[in-house]
């Protein structure tokens, strides 16, 4: 799995370049609408794979209210899946509600894991 850090880097490159924005922005909108997670009442950060140590750490650091809202959305999605329904356009998650609430925590946890990996394998060179 590509780390979220590399995704964030790619996103930064794209948002800096007006030409790339013109290509990727509509493409992202089409991708999001076809993936349909908003109709299941979810945000993008809810559907990132969470069975990794980094994600577990990130989720454990969420504020209590964010954590509650996340679990509630996931329960909603399960209920919809079970009853073979999707939310109506009025009730589905709006693009402006689809914020990256978990991303800063993941980036921090990924940075920590990477730094630890580097330091664990550091080679001491006498200058």
């Amino acid at each position: 799995m590509a780390s979220l850090t590399s995704v964030a880097k790619a996103a930064a490159t794209i948002t800096k370049n007006p030409f790339l924005i013109k290509i990727f922005s509509p493409a992202a909108k089409i991708f999001t609408s076809y993936s349909g997670y908003r109709q299941m009442g979810l945000k993008l950060d809810d559907i990132l794979i969470e069975e990794t140590p980094v994600m577990q750490k990130a989720i454990s650091r969420l504020p209590a209210s964010e954590s509650y809202a996340r679990n509630y959305r996931i329960l909603t999605a399960h209920q919809l899946s079970l009853s073979h329904h999707v939310l109506s356009a009025a009730k589905s998650v709006k693009p402006e509600e689809d914020d990256a609430y978990l991303t800063p925590y993941i980036l921090q946890a990924e940075f920590e894991a990477q730094e630890k990996e580097e330091l664990d394998n550091a080679v001491f060179q006498k200058a």
Binding site: E112, K116, L119, A122
Partner: peptide
Amino acid sequence: KSALRLKRESEF
């Protein structure tokens, strides 16, 4: 500097 880096560097 992170806590871990400070610790490891001073151990070095």
